[in-house]
Design a binder for these strands. Sequence first.
DNA 1: CATAGACAAATCCTATAGGAATGGTCCTTG
DNA 2: CAAGGACCATTCCTATAGGATTTGTCTATG
Lengths: 232, 232
Amino acid sequence: MKLASSRDRAPGRPVSRQVLADHVYEELLAWLMDGRLEPGAAVSIDGTARELDVSPTPVREALARLEHTGMVRRVALKGYRVAPVFTREDFAELMEARLAIEPVNARLACSRITPEGLADLRGAVKDLETAPRGPSFMEFRDYLEADERFHKLIAEQSGNQFMLAAYTALGGQVQRFRLFGGVGITDAEQAIAEHQAVLEALASGDPEQAAAAMADHVHKVRARAIADAPAD
Amino acid sequence: MKLASSRDRAPGRPVSRQVLADHVYEELLAWLMDGRLEPGAAVSIDGTARELDVSPTPVREALARLEHTGMVRRVALKGYRVAPVFTREDFAELMEARLAIEPVNARLACSRITPEGLADLRGAVKDLETAPRGPSFMEFRDYLEADERFHKLIAEQSGNQFMLAAYTALGGQVQRFRLFGGVGITDAEQAIAEHQAVLEALASGDPEQAAAAMADHVHKVRARAIADAPAD
DNA sequence: CATAGACAAATCCTATAGGAATGGTCCTTG
DNA sequence: CAAGGACCATTCCTATAGGATTTGTCTATG
């Protein structure tokens, strides 16, 4: 694979305000979300550099950033590995944390939401409805992306940079939730209905109702996942 | 300044499982917390490398990690700068986020706290009582360190890795709170009493009481800071 | 005097090279 | 056959060098 370097761009074109490390970061993130990098797999710095046809330096910088998201772990002098699969306990902890953070985001967002913000949320829900939901990951990738986007939009529109940071600290982990047991999407209809309920609560302008709708959604996601999860 | 390199260690000594980038990270963090790097100041990669007598490569990796904590910001092709000072709005947002997260941490920690954990917390409160509280930053550095340690211990003992991650996402920012207006420590007696109240609630074993004590503490910190803050 | 352009220094960004550590394999030895 | 040590390939880690970009200054011009 060959990433676009800032060196070989046409002289007249506007300067790409992105450096190679940013491209590498995005590419690795895509690999992680695509499942191309499986949990526990080693991520070689030199190997990735060869794969992407760049030098190890930007790869090293990109991995240093990824480490802080929890998607990869680093052991000094041994390299980076993709974070291991979720256990049942990990999942329970994640849902506990989401319950603490996301309803607050919904409440804050409700009192300052703009028509544009509502439109974005509606778009995310619409994408959720129309996204294909096949059995393999590539087939419900768009579904998960729309789901993640919905929740992130609410965090952004809370207007609180720290709540967004707190959500983001979970957000990278939320992606890994798909690995929990490897179950597919079996609850799409119910999840979509819950998202619509959150959306309507936000549109209604009642902060407490928005918080309650979000809490209800997270509660039900947890309950369904526990029911679906394979036994240990 | 000369950092200890893995190269010039005695052959017999146990291997230092830390690489240069880790030392640079710790050193930069100390600079930030010491106030040696002021908000808005540029952090030159090459300059820092010369200062620490290392090559720019580990400095680059350390800064990439620091960026994710919010302590420094990066602009492509322009370098890193220390994050700007807190505004009144930033502070209000931070307290809002702490109110969402820290009482939950206290509640979770309460139901699973160990005697060792309680002892650690008692130690932090004791350090808080005995720390000097002079007007300049160096003189109340230990006080702030003990304060931060108390809250971080509770986050750790929540037993929830994601709540800890969420708190940490704020934690780096909490340090910057000291820059808010540059006011010194004027509320030590009250703050210590509130910490003791949280400690006693945790020791009592009543999760809701622990959450309430923590919420009360954060509320009062906010109220006092707003009262102390200089006018815009 | 104000403004635009050119030059120079500092800095960032990437590539390359080599030392150092790790992990696995093979061989030797009890 | 099992256990321990040596060797080698792979990979990480750091230093160095040079191209690319930004920024400040200086000069010339309207």
